[in-house]
Every structure is written in structure tokens, then in C-alpha cells.
Amino acid sequence: RLHIEVEGTELMKKLVEEAKRRNLNVRAKVENGKWIIEID
């Protein structure tokens, strides 16, 4: 499991799109103003 903290929506969208393209499980949520992304 990969755990990433990202500031900025554009970067988050790119990460999520790339993960979906590779058929990975992606969860994204906002915590303290940062995107928290978990990829399995």
C-alpha cells in the first residue's frame, strides 16, 4: 500500500488517473487541507 500526501488538486488528479489506468485501488480524501491518497 502506498500512502501519499499531496498539496494541489491537479497533481492529485494525475496520480488518480494514472493509478486507475493501471487498475490499482485508489482512495483519496482531504485531511488538514492536503489530499491523502492511498493506492493498493
Score class of each variant (00 low, 15 high):
residue 36 I to L: 06
residue 32 N to V: 00
residue 39 I to H: 00
residue 19 A to F: 12
residue 28 A to G: 03
residue 13 K to T: 10
residue 18 E to I: 10
residue 9 T to R: 09
residue 36 I to G: 01
residue 19 A to N: 01
residue 19 A to P: 00
residue 40 D to F: 15
residue 29 K to D: 05
residue 31 E to A: 10
residue 30 V to I: 14
residue 1 R to L: 13
residue 23 N to A: 03
residue 20 K to Y: 04
residue 10 E to A: 06
residue 23 N to Q: 06
residue 2 L to A: 07
residue 7 E to R: 11
residue 26 V to D: 01
residue 34 K to L: 05
residue 39 I to D: 01
residue 11 L to T: 10
residue 34 K to I: 13
residue 32 N to K: 05
residue 35 W to D: 02
residue 31 E to W: 01
residue 12 M to Q: 02
residue 18 E to Y: 08
residue 23 N to L: 05
residue 40 D to Q: 10
residue 8 G to Q: 11
residue 24 L to P: 02
residue 1 R to C: 15
residue 23 N to G: 15
residue 35 W to N: 03
residue 35 W to Q: 03
residue 16 V to Q: 03
residue 1 R to A: 11
residue 37 I to V: 11
residue 23 N to Y: 05
residue 12 M to I: 10
residue 39 I to L: 07
residue 30 V to S: 13
residue 2 L to M: 09
residue 3 H to M: 14
residue 3 H to V: 15
residue 21 R to W: 02
residue 4 I to D: 04
residue 9 T to I: 14
residue 37 I to A: 00
residue 19 A to W: 04
residue 35 W to L: 12
residue 30 V to P: 07
residue 14 K to N: 06
residue 2 L to R: 10
residue 35 W to E: 02
residue 3 H to W: 12
residue 24 L to Q: 08
residue 35 W to G: 02
residue 4 I to F: 13
residue 19 A to Q: 02
residue 5 E to A: 08
residue 28 A to S: 06
residue 27 R to V: 14
residue 31 E to N: 06
residue 17 E to T: 06
residue 40 D to A: 09
residue 4 I to V: 08
residue 30 V to K: 15
residue 28 A to K: 02
residue 28 A to T: 13
residue 35 W to P: 02
residue 29 K to W: 15
residue 40 D to L: 14
residue 24 L to G: 04
residue 26 V to P: 08
residue 7 E to M: 12
residue 37 I to H: 00
residue 13 K to S: 07
residue 17 E to K: 08
residue 21 R to L: 10
residue 20 K to L: 14
residue 1 R to D: 08
residue 19 A to M: 13
residue 40 D to G: 10
residue 19 A to G: 04
residue 4 I to T: 06
residue 12 M to H: 01
residue 15 L to V: 11
residue 25 N to Q: 12
residue 9 T to G: 10
residue 8 G to I: 13
residue 22 R to E: 07
residue 21 R to N: 09
residue 1 R to P: 11
residue 21 R to Q: 09
residue 9 T to N: 11
residue 18 E to M: 13
residue 16 V to D: 01
residue 9 T to C: 15
residue 13 K to H: 11
residue 9 T to S: 11
residue 2 L to N: 07
residue 28 A to I: 15
residue 22 R to S: 07
residue 27 R to M: 10
residue 27 R to P: 00
residue 36 I to W: 04
residue 9 T to W: 15
residue 33 G to W: 02
residue 12 M to N: 01
residue 2 L to G: 06
residue 6 V to L: 06
residue 37 I to W: 02
residue 4 I to H: 06
residue 10 E to T: 04
residue 1 R to N: 10
residue 21 R to K: 13
residue 21 R to G: 07
residue 7 E to V: 13
residue 1 R to V: 14
residue 14 K to W: 13
residue 4 I to Q: 06
residue 37 I to M: 01
residue 10 E to I: 04
residue 16 V to N: 02
residue 40 D to P: 03
residue 30 V to D: 05
residue 30 V to F: 15
residue 5 E to G: 05
residue 17 E to G: 05
residue 32 N to H: 04
residue 18 E to Q: 10
residue 8 G to Y: 12
residue 12 M to T: 03
residue 16 V to R: 02
residue 24 L to M: 06
residue 28 A to F: 10
residue 9 T to P: 09
residue 38 E to M: 09
residue 11 L to S: 06
residue 18 E to R: 06
residue 23 N to R: 06
residue 9 T to M: 13
residue 27 R to G: 04
residue 22 R to Y: 06
residue 25 N to V: 14
residue 24 L to T: 02
residue 22 R to G: 05
residue 2 L to D: 07
residue 27 R to W: 05
residue 17 E to M: 08
residue 26 V to Y: 03
residue 29 K to H: 15
residue 1 R to W: 14
residue 28 A to P: 01
residue 3 H to I: 15
residue 40 D to I: 14
residue 40 D to S: 14
residue 28 A to Y: 10
residue 16 V to L: 12
residue 22 R to D: 06
residue 29 K to T: 14
residue 38 E to Q: 05
residue 8 G to D: 15
residue 16 V to G: 02
residue 22 R to Q: 12
residue 33 G to I: 00
residue 14 K to G: 05
residue 35 W to H: 04
residue 31 E to C: 13
residue 20 K to Q: 09
residue 38 E to W: 11
residue 27 R to D: 07
residue 10 E to L: 06
residue 15 L to Y: 07
residue 29 K to Y: 15
residue 2 L to T: 09
residue 7 E to P: 07
residue 29 K to V: 12
residue 3 H to Q: 13
residue 14 K to Y: 09
residue 8 G to M: 14
residue 3 H to G: 08
residue 27 R to Y: 08
residue 33 G to E: 08
residue 33 G to S: 02
residue 10 E to W: 03
residue 37 I to S: 01
residue 26 V to R: 00
residue 2 L to I: 14
residue 19 A to V: 06
residue 26 V to Q: 00
residue 2 L to Q: 10
residue 2 L to Y: 07
residue 20 K to I: 14
residue 25 N to I: 12
residue 33 G to M: 02
residue 10 E to H: 08
residue 5 E to L: 10
residue 34 K to T: 05
residue 16 V to K: 04
residue 37 I to T: 02
residue 26 V to G: 01
residue 6 V to P: 04
residue 14 K to A: 13
residue 5 E to Y: 10
residue 6 V to S: 04
residue 24 L to E: 03
residue 14 K to Q: 12
residue 32 N to R: 01
residue 13 K to I: 13
residue 25 N to Y: 02
residue 12 M to Y: 05
residue 18 E to F: 07
residue 1 R to T: 13
residue 17 E to S: 06
residue 21 R to T: 08
residue 14 K to S: 11
residue 12 M to F: 06
residue 22 R to K: 12
residue 16 V to P: 00
residue 18 E to D: 11
residue 28 A to R: 01
residue 22 R to H: 15
residue 3 H to P: 09
residue 2 L to S: 06
residue 39 I to G: 01
residue 21 R to S: 10
residue 13 K to F: 06
residue 39 I to W: 07
residue 29 K to L: 08
residue 28 A to V: 15
residue 34 K to N: 07
residue 19 A to I: 10
residue 24 L to I: 09
residue 24 L to D: 02
residue 8 G to E: 13
